[in-house]
Design a protein around this nucleic acid. Sequence first.
DNA 1: GTTCATTTGATTACTTTTGATCAAAATTTG
DNA 2: CAAATTTTGATCAAAAGTAATCAAATGAAC
Lengths: 253, 253
Amino acid sequence: MTIQERKKKILAEVYEAGSLSVFELADKMAASPATIRRDLHEITEQGLLVRTHGGAMKPDNAVITGFSDKKVQRHEDKERIAQEAATLVDDGDTIFMDCGSTVFQMCTHLKKKANIHVITNSLPVLAELIDVPSIRINLIGGELDKKRRAVHGQKAIEHIHGYHAAKCFIGVDGISAENGLTAHSEHESGITSAYLQNASQAILLCDSSKIGRDSYIKFAKLSAISCLITDGGIEEQTKKALKAKGVAQLIVV
Amino acid sequence: MTIQERKKKILAEVYEAGSLSVFELADKMAASPATIRRDLHEITEQGLLVRTHGGAMKPDNAVITGFSDKKVQRHEDKERIAQEAATLVDDGDTIFMDCGSTVFQMCTHLKKKANIHVITNSLPVLAELIDVPSIRINLIGGELDKKRRAVHGQKAIEHIHGYHAAKCFIGVDGISAENGLTAHSEHESGITSAYLQNASQAILLCDSSKIGRDSYIKFAKLSAISCLITDGGIEEQTKKALKAKGVAQLIVV
DNA sequence: GTTCATTTGATTACTTTTGATCAAAATTTG
DNA sequence: CAAATTTTGATCAAAAGTAATCAAATGAAC
């Protein structure tokens, strides 16, 4: 094995495992720890790996990510919702993903899919999926919302209109039978509307705290929603009301 | 077997296998290692293969061999160039920044500027500047080039045409008096052209190894360049030739 | 068939890479 | 916070690989 081949393999192994020790690598490569250290030194200089005491780690794009490490509220509910949503993605699909935290949690489950194409305005989604070989990514361009770690604005909306996807995965600030989908920021609602208009199916990921709650910008009717995925805290009556207003399918996890 | 036939076969075998040792090739070709080395030397000169200690590899159209190695190699030159380039940015400016490694190094120096607006297709630039309060960022959208950590493609080019900036800061693969600016990828050259067309001034950051070197896609004339910043390794004669062809200003750091 | 240029493989000196050793530095433990 | 342990990086000799040189082999031109 030549040096370049070995380095490539080290890179692949560490990316696969997340992190490995010098000795584990020495084993895998059939080389001495001294050699591995030398290799790691060079790979690290290129910034492709992060050296740790005793080994090396895959660099995480923490700077871009921002909220991916933060503690997400209602984490467990959202996790179940995201997992369910991911099952709706078929191999080969092109999908829109918005910048909500529940949608973000689909990423882990998407890594197992083959050959999917993700179009997103979310930097955390980007950061999480950028190193997955089976996933192609298109990034929505436009003004950067630093706090939300997402792209938004007029240009972004125009840009979304230049694409079509089989499915869009979105979150909202509020949803009710009376007012449909609502948001508390025009930036947010503009992007979500654009996704809705350019996808064949709309999947709304929405923990039950948002259901029956209204925010102040009404931006879409419930009939726009092909599938609403939510958690247990939803009453039978509410379900019926939502379905009556046009939510095609309702999944409770 | 003629020399040409053998070389062709070597190329085919290495491309098939990804990489092969000199001895493996000697075996396959029924030739001595000395002959294989000579062949590899010539093939490598054409850039069709990458020589490794002990063998040869299919060229890796990316980060591992390309950009990051160079970044480390001429780091100090590039740092000086980037620093000089940053002095050309005025408070309040809107600037384009491309995805070159030298351009990236401007980031550190930009943090001190007040109220600037950066439009970029480079994820490293994005990551570096995202948390700087005095800098607004617009991200160019489009297809994601994972290896280059940048956005490119037709949509990206269209997107750039939707903006105007006072200055663009760009890198190139090659520049010469005869052929102007050259690149080795259409993705790259397309983006750079778009920046050139939509900025009032073009500042080219270019270490001296690129000067006098030509890559194969000619995409802009020297008269498009308002300012070329380079390091010491440039001859007086070359300077004159570049200026004669239209480079408005030439700064050597 | 001789001459001349090219190509080849062997020999050589030289460079790079490797793993072992060991003191210094970093980390963990008491 | 100091001792014990682990990890590291520098150094060096051995091994592996390379580039240069040269003579033999090939083959084209006359």
